[in-house]
Design a protein around this nucleic acid. Sequence first.
DNA 1: CAGAAGATCATCT
DNA 2: GATGATCTTCTGT
Length: 221
Amino acid sequence: MASSSVNSSRNPWKPLPESFYARPTLEVARDLLGKVLWVDNAGACAAHIVETEAYMGDDPASHGARGSTPRSAPMFEDPGRAYVYLIYGMYEMLNFVTEPRGFPGAVLIRGVSPVSGHALMAKRRAGAREQDWTNGPGRLARALGIERSHNRASLQGPSLIVSDEGALPFRAPVMVSPRVGIRLARDRYWRFFIDGHPCVSPARENRLARPYSSPSVEAMA
DNA sequence: CAGAAGATCATCT
DNA sequence: GATGATCTTCTGT
C-alpha cells in the first residue's frame, strides 16, 4: 500500500489546483485541451479533453446570464467543481465551474478521447461505433458515467479528477480554433487538432467523414 | 449524405 | 405549458 492516502493506484492522476479554474472562462476552456479527465463511478475511465465550450457572464446562451437559479447556482459558486445538469430529458451535461466565486462561468466538455476504461465505455455505449463513444457532450457523459449526482463534485477527487499528468503528448504544432455556426457565432468553442485533424470526430460533423485518430491511446499503450 | 422527427423531463415563465 | 449547451433512428435520394 502506497504511503499516499489520497491517490490510490486506481486514480494515479495529480489534480490541477483550484487556481487553474479561477480564471477567465475562455482561457480555462483553452487550457483544458489535452488534459486528462478521470472519472470513477462504479468503474474508472480516463480520457483526454479535446473539445470545450465556454459559457460565462451575460452571454444569453449561458445559464448564469440571468442571475442565479436553483439549477445554475453552481456556476456562481466554487471554481474547480463540476456543474452537471439534464438536457432534453435524457442527457447529462458535464461542465467545470470557472471564474472567482460570485461571477458565473463554466466550461462545457464537448469531446474527449478515451485513454483507459475502454471496456466500461463500450458497455455504456453499446450499439455505438467506437468513434462515436465520446464525441459529443451527451455521449461522453454516458460513456464516462457522469450523472447529476456529480453536480458540485470536486475536480480534485475522489470521483472526478482533472490532471496535467499524462496530458496529451503533442507531436505537432497544436492548432486551437474557434468553431462557429452551431448556435451563436461566438468564439466560445475550442477544439484540439493534431496534424491538422481533430482528435475525435465532432458529433455534428460525422457526415464530413473526418478521419478519427486517437494518438493518446497509442502513446499510453 | 441530408433532413426530419421523436425521445423525455427538469427548469423557468 | 414551452423549451432546451442533444442524440438516435428513420426516411429518401
